[in-house]
C-alpha cells in the first residue's frame, strides 16, 4: 500500500490539474472523456482477449463438451471433483513446482552474474551484452527445435561432446530421470536474455556517485556488491522473480515440442495437461477446470511473494 501512495505522489502534474478542475466542471468532463479515450483501446483489447475468455473458461469448467467442443450438459462441480481426485493432478503440480524451482533461481543467478560482469565501460562490453541478451529474440518454438537437435540421442552435439570426453551418452529426453532436467537447462538458457536485460537496466540505473563515495570510504568490491548493488537492485530482482515464477508456471511450448509430457508423464507440467485435455481430447470442461485452478495458484503465489518479498525489497 505504501508503494501506491508513493506512486500517487510521483505524479504531481495530474494531481495539480485535478485541483484546478474542481472549479471548472466542463473541463472535468472533457478531461474524463479524454482519459477514458486513452484507456479505451487497452480496455477493449483486454476485454476481448483476456476478460471474456477468462469468464468463458470459468463457465465452461462447469460443463461437458462434445467432440467439437460444443457444450453438451451442465455437470456442476464434477470436473473439479474429477481433477482433484485424479492422482495425475498432484504429480503434474509437483512437476510444475520442481520445474519452477529448477529454473527460476538458477536463471536469475546466472543472469545477475552476467549483468554485473558486463556492467562496466570496458571496451567490447557492448558486444557481450548483445550476445547475452540474444536468446530474447528467439521464440519458444525455434529454441525448442534447436535444443531438440542438440539433445538428439544419436546425432546430437551434447552427446557427441560427452563421448569425446569419454562419458557415456545420456538419453536427455527419453530417460524419465533426465527429461525434466534437460528441459530446465533449455529453459534457463531461453529465459536468460530477458532476465539479463532487465537486471542490466536495473544496474545501470544505480547512480555512479554512490559507488564513488563508497570507494572513497574504502569499501571493497564485495562490500560494494552486497551493500550497494544488491539492495539497490532488489526491486528489479523482485520484479524478475515475479515474472519468472509466473512464466515457469505457465511454461508449455518447450514441453510440447521436446517431450510431449513424457516419458512416463515425467514432464507433464500443468499447462501441458491443460492443453492435452482441451485441445487434443477436446474436453474443454476439464481443460477449463485446470486453467482456473492454475489461475488461483498463480494469484496465491504472487500474493505470497508480495507479502514476503516486499519487506526485503529496498525502494529508493
Amino acid at each position: 500500500m505504501a508503494k501506491d501512495q508513493k506512486v500517487m505522489q510521483s505524479i504531481p502534474v495530474l494531481s495539480s490539474s485535478k485541483t484546478k478542475m474542481k472549479h471548472k466542471p466542463k473541463h472535468l468532463r472533457i478531461d474524463q472523456i479524454a482519459g477514458y479515450g486513452f484507456i479505451m483501446p487497452t480496455v477493449i483489447l483486454l476485454s476481448m482477449f483476456v476478460f471474456y475468455p477468462f469468464f468463458q473458461s470459468i463457465y465452461l469448467s462447469f460443463f461437458m463438451t462434445d467432440p467439437l467442443g460444443n457444450v453438451v450438459k451442465f455437470v456442476g462441480f464434477q470436473n473439479y471433483v474429477e481433477l482433484f481426485t485424479d492422482k495425475e493432478f498432484l504429480n503434474s503440480l509437483k512437476i510444475t513446482f520442481l520445474f519452477t524451482v529448477f529454473t527460476v533461481p538458477t536463471g536469475i543467478f546466472i543472469a545477475l552474474i552476467l549483468a554485473v560482469l558486463t556492467n562496466n565501460k570496458s571496451k567490447g562490453m557492448r558486444g557481450f551484452q548483445f550476445i547475452f541478451a540474444l536468446p530474447i529474440a528467439m521464440s519458444v518454438g525455434t529454441s525448442s527445435i534447436i535444443w531438440l537437435l542438440l539433445f538428439n540421442p544419436t546425432a546430437g552435439v551434447l552427446n557427441y561432446l560427452l563421448n569425446v570426453v569419454g562419458v557415456e551418452s545420456i538419453q536427455w529426453l527419453t530417460n524419465p530421470d533426465w527429461a525434466l532436467l534437460s528441459i530446465s537447462i533449455m529453459t534457463i538458457w531461453m529465459g536468460l536474455g530477458l532476465d539479463f536485460i532487465i537486471l542490466l537496466a536495473g544496474l545501470q540505473a544505480i547512480p555512479d556517485d554512490l559507488y564513488e563515495s563508497a570507494k572513497i570510504d574504502g569499501a571493497g568490491s564485495l562490500t560494494i556488491f552486497t551493500k550497494i548493488t544488491i539492495p539497490l537492485l532488489s526491486p528489479t530482482i523482485f520484479f524478475v522473480l515475479i515474472i519468472s515464477v509466473i512464466n515457469a508456471l505457465q511454461a508449455f511450448g518447450q514441453f510440447n515440442v521436446l517431450t510431449g509430457g513424457g516419458p512416463m508423464k515425467s514432464t507433464n507440467v500443468f499447462v501441458f495437461s491443460l492443453y492435452q485435455e482441451a485441445f487434443v481430447n477436446f474436453q474443454f470442461g476439464l481443460g477449463s477446470t485446470r486453467a482456473f485452478v492454475l489461475f488461483v495458484i498463480i494469484v496465491l503465489l504472487t500474493w505470497i511473494q508480495f507479502k514476503v518479498g516486499e519487506k526485503k525489497v529496498h525502494y529508493q
Partner: peptide, 18 residues
C-alpha cells in the same frame, strides 16, 4: 536400443547403421 517415442530418432539410428 530404446530411443523413446520419437520414431524419427529410431530411423536415424537405423540409417546410421547403429
Amino acid at each position: 536400443l530404446n530411443l523413446g517415442t520419437n520414431v524419427a530418432d529410431t530411423h536415424q539410428a537405423f540409417l546410421s547403421e547403429q
